[in-house]
Nucleic acid binder design. Structure first.
Lengths: 186, 186
DNA sequence: CAGCCTATGTAGCATTCGCTACATTAACCT
DNA sequence: AGGTTAATGTAGCGAATGCTACATAGGCTG
């Protein structure tokens, strides 16, 4: 058959959310066209038709994921401003500890690995997400902070280090480090 | 043919260094039996013969890589003890900035990604390496440091965060953060 | 010397991979 | 109405995948 009579035609934009759901559940490394297509309710044939290439699909998908992350940050308690760097750090750590974030974090390290190897699209997406988090941190630094930009970079480094240790199941150690530095409450 | 007359028979131990060299150069994700075998001067047939399964091979290989990392740390300026946490941090950051470490770091993020997804062998290897680094840090904390263990955890978190940002080409930002925190010299 | 056993080569198998060729049909345009 | 085109299905291709079956040559042990 051909053009579906009632169903609106599929577009990249309509496909990307379902593709994103699939890689969030199963990872980027194992993502091959046929399973991706099944998850999106279409065929490998159509994925190539819409995206041209698997590589192009992955690039688009990574940008889409970066957009999802940005939207999440935007929705994250944008109103009030924490009173201290410690409070800000606690807030972002709590957000990352939310179980709903787990699939995203698992995927995050795959994106970092791709960025480290400079696979096409990975570094751009990873940078977009890190830049966004940095900007969020700058915008949420306590009023009167002497060095919002540098402080945000400092917190960012600590956050990413904590997340990495958390990915290994060593969140305890990260917490111990932050505690020893007086950055979180016991 | 069969048993090589003069050449000693291949063992896991003789194969692992060459397999490690291959994954350091080309990554774990793309590592399939035939290329691995070519790099080790043997055949896929023999890899399965010696390791039983690709999965078992990867597990052995990850342990081997953890051993390489441990040996590197042991050789790393074990003698003198830095005078401050700052000096210790500077030393380990310099070590990681060594171009010779680049392939290892690229691979590291792949290991972290596998650990985050709990692929067999990955979390154990990643933990072994992180534990080793933590122990090294504890053993090299300045004399009289009030909290060597907590301090080492703090430095570890910062180091891993810095490495991650470095993997994205954002080492500048990590440096800015450490500078703002007074942890490195300008 | 007669076996046995270990290490190896050769061929292949079923599956999956990304991608393509070709056909077909519904919607749109003149 | 008739032609064009966008969107899709069906089949398949060549390569790569992990792994297996079978054969066999050499060393070791009796």
């Amino acid at each position: 058959m051909a053009r579906r009579p009632k169903k609106p035609p599929m577009t990249k934009e309509s496909l990307l959310p379902r593709l994103a759901a699939h890689v969030l559940a199963h990872g980027l490394g194992q993502a091959s066209l046929r399973p991706l297509a099944r998850a999106a309710g279409t065929s490998d044939r159509m994925l190539i038709y819409h995206f041209g290439t698997k590589e192009a699909l992955i690039i688009d998908l990574l940008q889409h994921l970066a957009g999802i992350y940005a939207a999440q940050l935007d929705n994250l308690l944008a109103a009030d401003r924490p009173a201290s760097r410690q409070a800000l750090l606690a807030r972002i750590l709590a957000h990352n500890a939310d179980p709903a974030m787990a699939p995203f974090l698992t995927l995050w390290w795959e994106i970092v690995a791709g960025a480290a190897r400079d696979l096409p699209g990975f570094r751009a997406a990873a940078r977009a997400m890190v830049d966004r988090l940095h900007a969020w941190l700058v915008g949420h630094m306590p009023a009167g902070d002497p060095d919002p930009d540098g402080g945000a970079s400092y917190l960012l480094t600590l956050i990413e280090g904590s997340l990495m240790l958390g990915a290994l199941g060593q969140g305890d150690r990260a917490r111990a480090g932050l505690l020893a530095a007086g950055l979180i409450a016991p």
